[in-house]
Design a protein around this nucleic acid. Structure first.
Lengths: 155, 155
DNA sequence: ATATACTCTACTCAATTGATAGACTGAATA
DNA sequence: TATTCAGTCTATCAATTGAGTAGAGTATAT
């Protein structure tokens, strides 16, 4: 159907790292770029955008870098994706944050597509707004533990 | 986040009409184009694609046109969208029909994004695969009836 | 034979996405 | 206060995708 943009995916990875290092003070773009394998210049734009929206803080000069402006548990995946891609909705006419009428649509009130897509949007938003950065860290830790317990027979 | 393409949206509308007229024999592209306000040449491509995938049948020459190859109740919205847009998944690594590894991803097994996006994909697919053309006709009828009962005070 | 109506390939055009370049600004510190 | 560090910002670019158009070709009914 569609996909979240690389921008959002990059942002999620970068913010995971910022969440993991929440108590370490500012983190360099260069480090995030290297660890998460994100083109540095592109990452700059992404972080800047999130900073200008208030989700991140930054500090210039030596000892500077980026950091989460709020606690990891208060930043949801939905908020991050919306911040960069604008909306979670599969069609603009069911978006909460970026509503636009579908120009080909004669009458929204009787549009069956709309009703179904509304349901898709709602369940999607429910999932993505429920999951926050702190959850994700825990989740990834669990996955890594489980993984390391699985015996690997291949050489 | 993303949106279904106009192609899919046009297809849904056109197929709704084909479902509504399921027992009337072939329907002209020109009629579908006019009724659903879809650019004719663009609609040709869409219907052709769906025909080549076996969802539609067609007949050339006088008395020709397009028709559903199967009963409306056996064609789901998910199938239509997948046929044209390729996938319902928000990231390629959780797509059932168009799986592709995310090149920036180091390890799928421990990727938290993947787990959450899998859930998004599953609930989306559950909704769209459950809804079929016959359901949609009933749904739109209900909506129209409800609408016509609402008193309209505007002139 | 002719008109009808789908079939198919090839374009075109605009918008979006992903990415890069380089000058600029503010902070730290030697 | 000069230097270095590191984020800020604007501009630009290339590639891809999405939407739409053109026109010749083919099958069918009458």
């Amino acid at each position: 159907m569609y996909a979240i943009s690389k921008k959002s995916k990059y942002a999620l990875r970068a913010l995971f790292e910022l969440a993991r290092r929440y108590h370490q003070g500012p983190v360099l773009i260069a480090e995030l770029s290297k660890h998460q394998r994100i083109p540095k210049k592109f990452l700059e734009l992404i972080l800047l955008e999130l900073r200008n929206q208030g989700m991140l803080g930054s500090k210039k000069g030596k000892g500077g870098g980026y950091f989460l402006a709020r606690a990891p548990s208060t930043i949801s995946l939905g908020e991050i994706i919306r911040a960069l891609d604008g909306s979670l909705a599969p069609v603009p006419c069911v978006s909460q944050t970026a509503y636009r009428t579908c120009e080909e649509c004669e009458d929204e009130a009787t549009c069956g597509i709309r009703v179904v897509m509304q349901e898709v949007r709602d369940t999607t938003a429910e999932i993505l707004d429920r999951e926050n950065l702190a959850d994700m860290l825990r989740r990834e830790e669990r996955l890594e533990q489980r993984r390391s317990k699985v015996p690997v027979y291949a050489i």
